[in-house]
Write a protein that binds this DNA or RNA. Structure first.
Lengths: 203, 203
DNA sequence: CCCATCTGATACGCGGACGTTTCAGATGGG
DNA sequence: CCCATCTGAAACGTCCGCGTATCAGATGGG
């Protein structure tokens, strides 16, 4: 049954896919404009110009949408950092700066994603991904960027402090509470990242 | 009207005050056990062994309770830090360690308060206080403890990064994700706090 | 041209939480 | 002793969001 049929010249799969895409985009818009808490199934559908029927066509429930959304965002961040580090040298200073710049640039360029990340704690499904990602970023920064032993609990602590602190700083800077330019923010985060490395465990 | 009358030997004011206190204590218990999101008017009243009528006798609404709760918690933290710094010398290292220890000890000793602080972002009223307090703590640490110029935007950034990062670290450590002792955590936070000071603006 | 499918809108039932109100019974003052 | 006040429990009305179901009209295949 349900022998998929073209409609207005588009195949069933294409229609479904573009509706899903519209929903994800609409959610990001709502989050960016009104915050995560405002992104209900109803408001998202209204924003997308679709009805709830199509929501449940693509997502099992609201959590599924949020998970898809934040996973896409986190993949984007990782990709951005990966690209920045791809052609980099071995200098810890250079690598740290490139990483910090990738992060700041990513969220500066798309405030919707920034708000999603910043407000992730309001929703359990988002918060779980956020926490996991912070651990991952901490490992990445301490290991791949600064080149210290991430098995050391002190290094883990330092990594989480830098990542958590950077998140807080980004949130404030994007809100206009910190009167520094993009480059100055990157400078400071880089400086702090380098300063925070436990000297006793350098490799 | 409402000519307050004693009941079971207690004055009306005393009865009301103890009910209010019971509600605050119950909220803290619920938050500690089940999280901020679980602290509804109904669950709090049930925990306190009171009914909603008494809730609205002491609080205008749920937000008022949350505000009273987090303000009390933040006052407690400030008091604890103040006491720690009261008899301290001028050494930045000593003052930083005492501050870090005060913070870690406070939340380590009362996980309910820790959970309230950590989960504050889930509720707007709590989050507003949390954000304001972080700015305040950042100023306190950079100014009163480390003795640098808090008018400098770079110092503000560093302060927020340390405070935000410390919050993240505390959250993880209390959750058992960081395998360090109380003293080791204080050591690391102290070390990082000192390392993060922008050297170009020392006073 | 006819009928199955797709679309868009709307209605529905459910549960959770809020804040208000009602009521019977316990308690204390005059 | 009587009656006003206090207590504890419960009921109520409202709102909001979820997830499902219904239905008339548009569209396309055979």
């Amino acid at each position: 049954m349900a022998t998929a049929r073209p409609y207005r010249g588009v195949s069933a799969d294409d229609r479904k896919a573009s509706r899903r895409e519209a929903l994800v985009a609409a959610t990001l818009d709502v989050v960016g404009r009104d915050g995560v808490a405002a992104a209900t199934v109803e408001t998202v559908c209204a924003e997308a110009g679709l009805t709830k029927r199509y929501f449940y066509e693509s997502f099992a429930d609201r959590d599924a949408l949020f998970e898809a959304l934040i996973d896409a965002m986190l993949d984007g961040v990782r990709e951005r950092i990966g690209a920045a580090l791809a052609g980099a040298g071995d200098s810890a200073e250079e690598r740290t700066r490139l990483t910090a710049d990738a992060l700041v640039s990513f969220f500066d360029a798309d405030r919707r994603q920034a708000r999603l990340y910043i407000e992730a704690p309001v929703h359990p499904a988002l918060n779980a991904r956020r926490e996991a990602s912070m651990t991952g970023f901490a490992d990445l920064i301490m290991g791949d960027v600064l080149g210290v032993d991430t098995a050391d609990a002190r290094v883990q602590l330092a990594g989480l402090l830098v990542v958590g602190g950077t998140t807080e700083v980004l949130s404030r800077w994007l809100a206009g509470e910190i009167d520094l330019t993009h480059d100055e923010v990157v400078d400071e985060i880089t400086r702090i990242g380098l300063a925070v490395v436990p000297t006793t465990v350098e490799t």
